[in-house]
Amino acid sequence: MSTPPPGEQPPLTIRAFADSLFHGERADNYFKFLKNFSEPEIDSFFQELLREVGDAVDTGDAAALARFVQQAQARAYKPAPGASQRPSQMLQLAAPVPLPQARLNKPLSKARVALFTTGAIYVEGLPPFYPADWTYEYAVRQARTFFERQPALRLIPRETPVEQLRVGHIAYDIRAAQRDINVMLPLERFRELEAAGDIGELAPHAYSFHGLTNVPRLRDEFAPQWAQNMLQEGVDAVFLTPG
């Protein structure tokens, strides 16, 4: 490829474009999965995407478009054959250990159920999960720094109006959660379940932190302490949504 004249940018390759979606210049958490595709796969994706968009424009039905994007996303994140990890590796543990498994020892209709999300949801007026002088857009481009951050748990009172909840995760597309927090933290849905008697009661708080964090400290320090606190709050079961 020839060198462009001084002051001119080199032509943008499809590879560079896809890579820039991954917390880069064109950061886009919905489509950053394209970084995991080969160039022919990216090419094929965009051709099919444009076809689906055209169909959606004509029919007014975006279901096929949505399915196409979701399936491409799932394909992009699927590990390569033979690359699956043992639980101890995924949990970054030194040696294989059995995974604990508790049982719910009462009917759900009598259980205290808590919501827990790593989707970085918080109550308005409180700071997001990154420095206050960062914009969200800037925070998205600083993804690597989040692995050094101490996990910070937010307690959301169960009666918090959903209009007062904000979403601050920098690694998934937050627009759906901004429109309807229930897609990640189904607080309204669980209040309904409680009112209907389907669960015994909703715990006094929902719990949230930013899932991109210092994993060893989460594993060894914070998660065990949080679990003890929730046990002391009488929580019987937890509904978790990874962000």
């Binding site: 899932g211 998660a223 065990p224 929580v235 978790l240």
Partner: peptide
């Protein structure tokens, strides 16, 4: 992956969990 650590910690103290991925 963080949710796995949280679920593990909860299960270890006897709190049952279900994760929606």
């Amino acid at each position: 992956m963080s949710v796995g650590h949280v679920a593990r910690a909860l299960e270890a103290v006897g709190i049952a969990t279900v994760c929606v991925y």
